[in-house]
Design a binder for these strands. Structure first.
Lengths: 236, 236
DNA sequence: GCAAAAGTGTTCTCGTTACACCCATGC
DNA sequence: GCATGGGTGTAACGAGAACACTTTTGC
């Protein structure tokens, strides 16, 4: 009866708690992950997710937002808990559990200087190098989650500029789903939600004709969501 | 630059890590939660989820399985991580983060003596009392997750006896979804997966005619799942 | 013989899929 | 004027929703 013996908080073992963050970005049709050179031993200098130990005076989320701000200069970005990695020997440096998270950022918004100063680098998701500890597993799990979640919530928009074109949006979903989608059906479906606001501007960087820019209507989505609406993109 | 200063593991703050488990059962058409009387101060004697601190020598999952075994006598039950609760002041006893989990058990399999010895009790999910700390929030979140998950994975079966009838299964889904389902459509859909094995026995406890018993075909499901099959029950 | 739960089929609707051509423009 | 990517409509199909009656048997 372990619990019978341990009646007070002070007799309990304390544990190192870290949080590691899979930061995804989307650039020119390619989904990318931000990694950096680890600064502490063991494995100092090897590729690692962005992370930190959790401090006494902050929640796990606070800690994750703190490192994200430090590494990218960005605040108010999409961040969601993935899962806890707590195998006793997962970290060869010390017993340490890690709360993995994933974040989605607009790849052109971040502070490039800040990123470079930290030795961070973007890798295409199919070219991710060996990472320290169990970080490659975290990335695999995060990608699975991202694939699931994007089909059931409009979080893909977090990876695009505030103003985007339908072809851009489609290429994002194609990168996430790892397959080609039908132009007409994709456009029809996305517009049918009534959540995209068509602007009077065109983006001409990818074609001579130019593609109309849209904004995602966050307010309308919030309202719809509260009244039981479900964003569902595909039966996968 | 918090990280610049903190270069070694040994300078890091350690934190108490607990795991709390929402244990669900299903009995006579009602979804229930197992809670118990807390044994440590503060709030000693009040209703609480089943939980424990995580030990140096075990993973979070190990800790959860340890308390589940201790409280119910059950092993090999469905257990999944929910999320981490880590607000700095969530626990008034000490800084402590908790990894919430949820478990599904066959309500007649557990060891009743063991449960009573721990002062545990089943509550219908719409009659759950005030629980200590943030445990009521955990339960709300666990119910949301359970509702989501049961529509996308065949985990409902974990709450029923190994042999069950279609009407039983339907009443389970009705309890989880909180609404009446159509008999014919439900039966048709569930049987269409080809994952239920019809037995030669009937259960006569709820009707004179008796209803045929079925088993869930776990092996077949594993195979189908690997080849990309998705169990999808409803678009919610 | 009747109450009470188990079991069974069909139609309608709507969303998903598949598919091919014209449009606007910079060069 | 032509190459390039943007934008549009329709028909066939399949899955989900709605809906009512027969069967079995213990009392």
């Amino acid at each position: 009866m372990a619990l019978e013996k341990k009646r007070t908080y002070t007799e309990q073992p304390k544990i190192l708690v870290a949080t590691d963050c899979c930061v995804f970005g989307f650039d020119k049709g390619i989904l990318k992950l931000l990694v950096f050179r680890r600064r502490i031993d063991p494995f100092k200098g090897e590729w690692s997710l962005i992370g930190s130990f959790v401090d006494e005076e902050e929640s796990v989320t606070d800690a994750a937002r703190r490192v994200l701000l430090e590494f990218t200069g960005l605040e108010n970005i999409f961040l969601e808990e993935l899962k806890v990695y707590s195998d006793v020997d997962r970290d060869t440096g010390a017993r340490c559990i890690s709360v993995a998270q994933y974040a989605l950022i607009r790849i052109n918004d971040y502070d490039k200087e800040q990123v470079e100063r930290h030795g961070a680098k973007w890798f295409a998701i199919d070219e991710i190098p060996n990472l320290v500890l169990d970080h490659n597993v975290m990335v695999t799990d995060a990608l699975d989650r991202l694939r699931q979640k994007t089909t059931r919530a409009p979080i893909g928009f977090e990876l695009l500029p505030k103003k985007f074109t339908i072809p851009q949006l489609q290429s994002l979903y194609e990168a996430i789903c790892q397959r080609k989608l039908d132009d007409r059906n994709f456009r029809k479906k996305l517009l049918s939600f009534g959540l995209l606001i068509k602007l009077d501007e065109k983006d001409k960087t990818t074609s001579k004709k130019g593609a109309f820019l849209y904004k995602f209507d966050h307010d309308k989505y919030k309202n719809l969501e509260e009244s039981g609406f479900n964003f569902v993109l595909k039966p996968l």
